[in-house]
């Protein structure tokens, strides 16, 4: 078959290099750095979404259905205080908090699939910064979550949710959501590295994340919960986030006087929780990833 690739003389002198392709000279391999490499991987992940738009269901149809279900089905029977437009407005921060918590889901599923199919190995065999695989996955997941936040904001506007505080407060709320998403990425990397299949990830995450995101002030006020449950719910880090976002958007009043400590300083607590979760989860996640891939 093949033709004739003349090896350039320059190649011969370098000694250890041999092997040519038709009409191609060995190209210069350039180290483009972590960011460029990560973005190359992000672009690949975005092509995935383009080819399989249903990958976005978890941040589009699903939360929108939740907004509609809770707003119109349960909404009438849940009384909330301090929300100018009632339960529907109060609900929005909760659903966004839950959706961002599910970022861990997205990361875990994507990572497990890539490990499983050998894509991660292929990338690790390339002369790139090894972190690019995880950074690329994380940036994609934050983009993914951001799409969800935009869609939910629009849905919220349609059902009567409004931002009633200043631009800075509103922006801080969105920032906290993304910060939370960042912490959840590490949980995703941990689970994605530890589980052997996408099905296992789905099973585990469904069984844990759903209860955890409901056992908070996301969909119903904690005041009416049995007291033991209420304590757990109010110490749930997600509750701090949701309370912070609600307050910053002017969708609720301050937490009741008898609420647990974090809810009285929700913004600060959210920052502490996310930093703390990251500090615990990141080393575990990196170790799990290392163990899974580098053995």
């Amino acid at each position: 078959m093949s033709t004739q690739f003349e090896r350039p003389e320059s190649e011969r002198t370098t000694g250890s290099t041999t092997g040519r392709q038709p009409g191609l000279e060995r190209p210069e391999i350039r180290d483009t750095g972590l960011l460029r490499q990560s973005l190359t991987i992000v672009r690949r992940n975005l092509i995935h979404i383009k080819r399989m738009p249903e990958m976005l269901l978890d941040v589009t149809i699903q939360p929108v259905m939740f907004v509609l279900l809770f707003a119109f089905v349960f909404g009438g029977s849940i009384a909330v205080q301090g929300s100018p437009a009632g339960y529907r407005e109060w609900l929005m921060a909760g659903i966004m908090g839950q959706t961002v918590a599910f970022a861990s889901f997205i990361v875990a599923v994507g990572l497990t699939a890539d490990i499983d199919k050998g894509i991660v190995d292929r990338m690790r065999s390339l002369p790139i910064n090894p972190a690019a695989v995880l950074v690329g996955r994380s940036i994609s997941s934050l983009l993914h979550s951001s799409i969800g936040i935009v869609i939910m904001s629009l849905t919220g506007l349609a059902v009567g949710w409004r931002i009633r505080e200043g631009v800075l407060d509103a922006a801080l709320a969105y920032f906290l959501l993304l910060l939370w998403g960042f912490a959840m990425i590490w949980l995703g990397i941990l689970v994605g590295s530890a589980m052997r299949s996408v099905e296992a990830v789905n099973g585990l995450m469904f069984a844990t994340m759903f209860p955890v995101t409901f056992l908070a002030d996301t969909f119903a006020p904690t005041e009416n919960m049995p007291s033991a449950l209420r304590t757990v719910a109010e110490w749930n880090p997600l509750s701090s986030l949701v309370q912070a976002v609600r307050e910053l958007w002017g969708n609720t009043g301050p937490a009741p006087a008898d609420a647990a400590l974090p809810l009285h300083h929700p913004v600060l607590s959210t920052i502490i929780w996310t930093v703390g979760l990251t500090a615990v989860l990141a080393p575990l996640a990196l170790r799990a990833f290392q163990r899974r891939t580098a053995t």
């Binding site: 009409g23 190209p27 391999i29 490499q37 990338m123 390339l126 002369p127 690019a132």
Partner: peptide
């Protein structure tokens, strides 16, 4: 994708 990760130029990647 892989050519990009190697840091090869777009022109080269196209030809290759």
């Amino acid at each position: 994708l892989i050519g990009g990760l190697y840091g090869l130029t777009p022109g080269y990647i196209k030809r290759a």
